[in-house]
Write a protein that binds this DNA or RNA. Structure first.
Lengths: 139, 139
DNA sequence: CCTTGACCTTCCAGCAACTGGAAGAGCGAT
DNA sequence: ATCGCTCTTCCAGTTGCTGGAAGGTCAAGG
């Protein structure tokens, strides 16, 4: 099938599917006229990647998972390792964001938000120059 | 002062400080020899940005905040709007990550992680092709 | 006076994962 | 033959830096 139908069936934009070919994730056959020709198996792989991306896996993890998916002799331990590592990454990101959100909520709650200039948010940012030690760290 | 000292005092890498000049965030004076010459005020602005970045503000928000910081006639409402919008963005990201984490935790907990091939994680990804409706959405 | 080494300069490339757009074929229907 | 849609390739841009190459500057030591 053409890329348009593969896009519809996998739920991915055609642009993205072409990109996945560029990086050798899913490489379809070609017709005589140069058009890409996707098999059902290709679409399956695309949908697999789509789901993995929705779960936040990076492209290289998707590649790894796709390899494991294809490998009938895989060990589930290998899959689990990839997933657990990713879960840890996500949890770290969440903690980072949580720290930012806590600080921001505090600052926003204490800002009057009227037409006067004094503002605890600006003060916080400005006083960082003084070498204050605050909470949030970047990812 | 030279960029090295500005880097030390602001806590930002020299590379980053040069980049901030490229995008016209903090533009220092120049000496006769072509070296950048940072004033205390420049360093203050750099530290301000450093803190804002740590709180997750994007570069354009930093620019806006810096403008407001400089503007003695600012309305704290303007600052608050920027901060609240950013807070909402962060909260949205957190909800997205939370959804991913919940699914992943469930899958990881149910995977034996031994040397056999059957694995609920792979199954989940593979069955996405069947048009299952699952929870997590991408950011 | 010359060299060494630490600094400074510019520019170019690359990361992740696409996304948009331009220019040009192919294809089915009218 | 022409319309309109899909397909092709390639190039550029997004975000916020980071690394590296090639070369200039400067203070100190021999």
């Amino acid at each position: 099938m053409n890329i348009g139908e593969a896009a519809e069936r996998s739920g991915l934009p055609a642009k993205t599917i072409r990109y996945y070919e560029d990086i050798a994730l899913v490489v379809p056959a070609r017709r005589m006229n140069g058009y890409r020709d996707y098999s059902d198996a290709d679409v399956h792989r695309l949908a697999f990647i789509h789901r993995a991306r929705d779960l936040g896996f990076g492209i290289e993890s998707c590649r790894k998972l796709l390899d494991l998916y294809t490998d009938r002799a895989r060990a589930s331990a290998d899959v689990k390792r990839v997933a657990r590592q990713h879960l840890e990454d996500i949890e770290l990101k969440m903690r980072t964001l949580e720290g930012m959100a806590t600080t921001l909520r505090h600052l926003v709650d204490n800002c009057r938000g009227d037409n006067r200039p004094d503002c605890p948010i600006i003060d916080d940012l400005a006083n960082a120059a003084a070498g204050d030690d605050r909470t949030t760290k970047r990812p």
